[in-house]
């Protein structure tokens, strides 16, 4: 069974727990949590990740800044990035996609949304 490292960058413990809870249904994932963008970058430099799920609104460093920094790193030029947004049709979403995010999920999130997007981006069977 192939193993994937997934990083969750989210300041809300409730959201983090919900995402971790959902992702535990996929076998072979190693999940690492970060509470803000800076924490996320630290963790990205310590381990090679196969996917990043990040919130937009976070203290210290927000998700948009994180996405642009991740994309400027040649090691992470192609890593799938999923952003978690609050608004249904916000500019944040478009900006994140323009900066190089691959997909987005909208709050209030459903566990199925997280599972679907993760399986799709990691090419895992449903």
């Amino acid at each position: 069974m192939s193993n994937y490292n997934v990083l969750i960058v989210e300041d809300s413990p409730t959201m983090r727990q919900l995402i971790v809870f959902a992702l535990k249904r996929i076998r072979g994932l190693t999940i690492v949590e970060a509470g803000d963008g800076v924490d996320g970058l630290k963790k990205l430099s310590a381990t090679k990740f196969d996917m990043i799920l990040t919130d937009i609104n976070m203290p210290i460093m927000d998700g948009l800044k994180l996405v642009s920094l991740v994309r400027s790193d040649p090691n992470y030029a192609a890593v799938p990035i999923v952003i978690i947004t609050t608004e249904g049709a916000s500019e944040d979403k478009e900006r994140a996609i323009a900066l190089g995010a691959n997909a987005y999920i909208t709050k209030p999130i459903q566990t199925t949304q997280i599972l679907d997007v993760t399986r799709r981006l990691l090419n895992l069977p449903a």
Partner: peptide, 23 residues
């Protein structure tokens, strides 16, 4: 789980807020 994760009054209010926003 989150509601009973703290005994700090402000943190409890924060958790309730998060649940209402995110869930």
């Amino acid at each position: 789980y989150q509601l009973h994760s703290t005994l700090d009054f402000r943190e409890v209010l924060q958790v309730i807020t998060e649940i209402i926003i995110n869930l």
